[in-house]
Design a protein around this nucleic acid. Structure first.
Length: 281
DNA sequence: ATCAGCACCTGTTGGC
DNA sequence: TGCCAACAGGTGCTGA
């Protein structure tokens, strides 16, 4: 469900909605949702959220105590700030139009002022954990695609000697963090690079083009508040708009928007991968 | 290093 | 209508 643009959208929404709020308590409905490594859920009581931001595909809530709540939404996780404490019941006050549905609520954070942060997750893959110390290091993920330290030359260096397909390489969060299946296909299409190309065989020019396209596509996706292909909703429960702008993802069998060639679907690293066999070399 | 395969889960869709 | 297989935005583990 969520890749960098979706997680960024949610984090920005939640930063506005819940920063400054003090936690009154947490309720866990599906035990595996909470990763028991690190401090307990109970220890959150009385702590205050100072900021919400994104690290890779994690929504990170900084706490007054110096700790951090790191949430990974995996495929179907949703984080929705509810104005009142509607709990597991569907919100009836009409505030969020698509409230996290009660049936799939896995964890709730209640705030002292009565507000609630609901974590809904149909497939139960999502995870919450509390981290002390350096978050990025604890999460074991690589450089952010928007980090200025990631230059075209740096991307070129990182891919040297790698024989795995570039699309597979992009999905490995230890290399770059935040890219998922949709935007890997989209960026490679934009950069006119075939997903099956060996990472180590990219030229300097292609590395530069790829970095440019990754940023361009994801920046645009953020401006459209993410892609709602299926379950994704923002921090208020509303879908994004970028799914209407996707150039190749999910368009197998349809004509390429550049050259009309039929878009092909192949499987790489067990994931559906879309590309134009003529435009992408 | 890297891959396939499977695991974790539930829901939707398409074919017969 | 029913049934079943395939597939879904992600990641982690095992064994080759």
């Amino acid at each position: 469900m969520p890749e960098l643009p979706e997680v960024e959208t949610i984090a920005r929404d939640l930063d506005r909605a819940i920063s400054g709020r003090r936690i009154a308590g947490a309720k866990l409905f599906w035990p595996k949702t909470f990763d028991v490594r690190g401090p307990s859920l109970r220890s959150l009581r009385g702590d205050r959220i100072t900021r919400v931001h994104r690290i890779g595909k994690f929504v990170v809530m900084d706490l007054e105590s110096g700790r951090h709540i790191a949430v990974h939404l995996r495929m179907t996780g949703q984080l929705i700030a509810l104005a009142n404490g509607s709990g597991r019941k569907a919100a009836t006050d009409g505030a969020p139009r698509a409230p996290s549905d009660a049936k799939h609520t896995r964890l709730l954070l209640r705030f002292e002022d009565g507000g609630t942060l609901a974590f809904s997750d149909t497939r139960k893959f999502g995870r919450w954990r509390i981290v002390e110390g350096d978050v990025r290091e604890a999460l074991g993920i690589g450089v952010d695609p928007f980090d200025p330290a990631l230059t075209p030359e740096r991307l070129y260096e990182l891919t040297r000697g790698r024989t795995t397909p570039i699309k597979t390489w992009l999905l490995d969060q230890r290399h770059l963090s935040g890219i998922g299946n949709i935007y890997a296909s989209e960026a490679l299409y934009d950069a006119r690079i075939r997903p099956t190309r060996r990472a180590g065989r990219l030229s300097r020019a292609q590395s530069a083009a790829l970095l440019h396209s990754l940023r361009k596509v994801m920046r645009k996706a953020i401006s459209y508040r993410g892609s709602s292909v299926d379950d994704y909703v923002d921090g208020a429960g509303m879908p994004g708009e970028f799914q209407k702008k996707l150039a190749v993802y999910g368009r197998g069998g349809m004509p390429c928007r550049r050259c009309k060639t039929v878009i092909r679907r192949v499987v790489l690293a067990q994931r559906g991968t879309f590309f134009c066999p003529v435009c992408q070399l």
